[in-house]
Design a protein around this nucleic acid. Structure first.
Lengths: 341, 341
DNA sequence: CTGTTAGCGCGTTCAA
DNA sequence: TTGAACGCGCTAACAG
């Protein structure tokens, strides 16, 4: 990672130029911008007019250095283009913007190593806070964050022991609740499909929740009813076909990730299978599209946008010096029962 | 927009501390980081080891100030959570990351005023380049950019006169091509549905393309066959129903935006209408899902990710001092013919 | 209410 | 190959 830096804009107008042009001292200009009420109406107007006239653009980077502050927050998500994460990013951006903070965004590509590198880079940019979707980090990453002393909020799962703070829902509880919901609707052989629990902590938690529900129901675990697949519509379809072949009596499948449920539903349509009569289908996230399919899909509704917002709000509170902020904020989830189950 | 700044991390370790600990001068540490080959193997190792040992994190913000450079690029999109734009952002992030540049991301909420404010804020952060999805800007925004002298790339449409550079496809050409394609497949009464052309430049261009195709075909414009709607699946469905009522002989609808086509298809399924026999449906962007619906949807495929990548690459070239960069890069589009038309 | 002084943590430029 | 002086553009702390 070579620091391929580059010439910044040639905006040669400095605060001092404004001061000279207005016939005041540099500090007066600085105050006109940051503490307008500490200047006389007259001086303030003079300065602001001059700023406007000569087109001065403040240099926040110099301001940050001088004041040892920062107005940039770093956020790292597994993937920028995954709509689930971009919902969270949107929530974060909305809140930060209202407070004049900026968002430095990067994606780790689901890699811990990459996340570590990004954390180092963001810390070098002197971000005033970190928003991490991951709840798992390399030891070096943890050490860097600890030393930097910046507030951190983890949003991917409601970790038992957050690095600092966590704003999320419980993946395990959500998966457990949906499994119990399906059982409650009479399904006896409930399958579970997710991304690989080996590489994905969130999938692991969801699988735990599924197993926990089975235990509560006094039902045995059946490997034929569990599948780990790669991402994508096609993967959901294939997982359904495979599972039905392995366990022909499966009567419902809970797709705990991504767009699997939609892929499976379309495959069922293609084969003329009735949903939920032939096979019931439930999804994880309440993507807009799920309420427009035929039949509409039962799923969990997770507060993705709200997570981004609350995380940002919590960060703001900490930045304002409050130390009574909660360590864990559980934003919960909702089961949306529709025609597919 | 009050600058709600906040204490940065307390990482008190400065370059000078590293120098003292290693028994060298500050400059030697600086060089070990930026020009390793200008130091003796021995000194370099000593310094790097010391850095690692005491956990020094470089302060890029101070570095930027001292060198009058920046390693941050600003990108403004209409909406962060819209998957079309997040694809572009992903492409940008991929490329920037390889060069050690960072991405400051914000969304304008489709507002020119907001875009102007963001441009000002980004310029104050001394970004080394700007990536704007919009191709329309307030005069003040244009003036600020001009004065700052930073390279700018517009990605939303292939503007005739870019501010600086444009990397995109032509909305007008794409819409024209699809309309002609539908006519070529025998459809005689082709409807057009988009976001409002009055408020959205891209929709305006697409409508132009549609009209241009009609003119080439010697067909009259028929207001009954044109609709402007709000965003969303439901809007697409409703637009289809309304249009069929207004013009019962419409045999194909080209949905030039968002997720309208999917909403319309689902509505058709719900009513048991055969697609494309009863009504043919074509979409604009090739969202993954379009190739999984039943029937699969004909659409335009636009190089969203590639636009982000190429824009970033072009920016990098300019930052490296090249001035032979093209002013307009047309990344084209593709018509994907599937079963829905 | 306004100005002065002294840095923030680095890179640049020169000299050694 | 290494180092010393100076300044980037701004803010903090104090003085008036």
């Amino acid at each position: 990672m070579t620091a391929n830096k580059s010439r910044a804009g040639g905006s040669a107008v400095r605060m001092l130029d404004v001061a000279n042009a207005a016939g005041v001292s540099l500090m007066t200009v600085s105050r006109a911008l940051r503490q307008p009420d500490k200047l006389s109406e007259e001086t303030r107007r003079l300065v602001l007019d001059t700023i406007h006239k000569i087109g001065y653009v403040p240099n926040h980077i110099a301001a940050n250095l001088a004041s040892n502050r920062s107005n940039v927050v770093g956020q790292i998500v597994p993937s920028i283009q995954n709509s689930l994460y971009s919902n969270t990013v949107q929530g974060t951006a909305d809140i930060l913007r209202q407070s004049g903070l900026h968002l430095l965004l990067a994606d780790s590509g689901y890699s811990l190593q990459e996340e570590e590198a990004l954390i180092g880079a963001f810390l070098a940019q002197r971000v005033c806070g970190l928003l991490l979707h991951n709840t798992q980090h390399t030891p070096r990453a943890v050490e860097m964050i600890r030393r930097a002393g910046v507030p951190v909020i983890e949003t991917g799962d409601l970790a038992r022991n957050p690095l600092d703070m966590a704003v999320s829902y419980s993946n395990a509880n959500a998966a457990r609740a949906m499994t119990l919901h399906l059982a409650g609707r009479g399904y006896r052989r409930i399958g579970f499909v997710s991304l690989s629990p080996r590489t994905n902590l969130r999938s692991r938690e969801r699988l735990k929740g599924y197993h926990s529900a089975l235990a509560s129901l006094d039902r045995p675990r059946d490997p034929a009813l569990v599948a780990a697949v790669e991402s994508g519509f096609g993967a959901g379809a294939q997982a359904m076909l495979d599972m039905i072949e392995r366990a022909p009596d499966v009567d419902a499948i809970f797709f705990a990730g991504d767009v699997f449920a939609i892929g499976a539903l379309f495959e069922a349509q293609r084969r003329g299978w009735k949903v939920p009569e032939r096979i019931a289908i439930a999804g994880f996230d309440d993507l807009d599209i799920l309420q427009h399919t035929v039949p509409r899909l039962t799923c969990l509704k997770l507060p993705r946008l709200e997570i981004g917002r609350r995380a940002a709000e919590l960060l703001l509170q900490r930045l304002e010096g409050r130390h009574d902020t909660p360590q864990r904020v559980d934003l919960g989830f909702e089961i949306i029962q529709r025609e597919s189950t």
